[in-house]
Amino acid sequence: MKSLVFQATTRAVTPLLLAFSLFMLLRGHNEPGGGFIGGLLAVAAFALYALAFDARRARALLGVSPQTLTATGLLLATGSGGAAWLAGQPFMAGLWLSAALPAELKLGTVLLFDVGVYLVVLGAAALVLLTLREG
């Protein structure tokens, strides 16, 4: 699959895909999207990169190891649920910052949870695909 056209296209598309994945993650609470969809989009970007070039370069693009991403995501998701304990609420109760941000986006533990989902999906799927691509 070492086609130059494919590689050039990929180079152009990957940043777009990644940006789009973040957009999907953030808007997910109000429009179709969310952590699962955003994570899958990001994986698609890295999978494309790994196919066009090789797994090593895709890993370099990722920066951290997929295992770290997965673990961080799980910790983030659990921690965002545990934060409710500190506020004296049951596990996983959503907490919100009172200050409303533009574009309907509100900061709260729920968003952290969604980011955790995003990281787990990205980490786990990237781990599978990159490991397979190397092998």
Partner: peptide, 18 residues
């Protein structure tokens, strides 16, 4: 504070399942 009910269920109402 979410309009996409499916996502709200996933990350808030039923977050433990997720």
């Amino acid at each position: 504070h979410g309009r996409n009910i499916v996502n709200v269920i996933l990350v808030d109402f039923r977050a433990l399942d997720t």
